[in-house]
């Protein structure tokens, strides 16, 4: 009789299926809907130039602006779901793109420090690291009450270390681990790719999330 799949294999399969679906939607938004809207936007700008009536010109201009806002929102939504650069350029460029969006959305500044050169990571490793970082940053925006985050990437000796540090209000790790499935999911995601996620926090001093991945 064949061996049944392990719990880890099932978890990996579910996560991978979800990620593939998210990636498909993000790509469709970015390359499909986004591109079509951009063509419409260019067309409207062309039409606007040919109109003589000032009322009509102003109306078309408003429509152009509305379209521009929609295109921008689609682009941001796509970056949030699955940055197109994650597959093409790698983890660090995708994080840079996400951090720009994070600061302009939440007003929280992020200082990014990178030491070493990003190695060739598998698609699963890249998306896992990106999701863990996304969850950690989201938690800072929701609970930490701070305006600054330090994010460090260290690529040395066949190891990847990612550290997310904030000087926000902090929390009791044991209590939150029981209450929040987000924190547990971060640890579980890292375990599934053979890495670790360590969460340390002190009330009034802030939180540090250390992510380690042997390569």
């Amino acid at each position: 009789m064949k061996n049944s799949p392990t719990k880890n294999q099932i978890s990996s399969y579910i996560i991978q299926s979800q990620e593939e679906e998210i990636k498909r939607i993000a790509l469709e938004l970015h390359e499909g809907v986004g591109q079509t809207l951009y063509s419409l936007y260019s067309g409207l700008q062309f039409i606007e130039q040919t109109i003589n009536s000032s009322n009509m010109k102003s109306y078309v201009n408003e429509m152009s602006q509305l379209l521009e806002k929609t295109i921008q929102e689609i682009r941001l939504l796509s970056v949030e779901l699955h940055p197109p650069t994650l597959t093409t350029l790698g983890l660090v460029p995708a994080m840079k793109s996400y951090l720009r969006m994070f600061t302009s959305t939440y007003g929280i500044l992020v200082d990014l420090d990178i030491e070493g050169q990003e190695p060739n990571l598998t698609e699963t490793q890249k998306i896992t690291l990106f999701r863990v970082c996304q969850e950690a940053l989201g938690n800072v925006a929701k609970y930490a009450d701070t305006h600054f985050i330090q994010l460090d990437f260290l690529f040395v000796d066949n190891n990847l270390t990612m550290t997310i540090n904030d000087n926000g209000k902090g929390f009791t790790v044991e209590n939150e681990m029981q209450r929040s499935s987000g924190l547990a999911a971060m640890k579980e995601r890292m375990n599934l790719i053979g890495g670790q996620c360590l969460i340390t926090s002190e009330i009034g001093k802030g939180t540090t999330i250390d992510v380690l991945l042997p390569l």
Binding site: K69, E73, T105, I108
Partner: peptide, 9 residues
């Protein structure tokens, strides 16, 4: 923070 926030349409 409000100074750095750009509204999402």
């Amino acid at each position: 923070k409000y100074e750095r926030i750009t509204l999402r349409y």
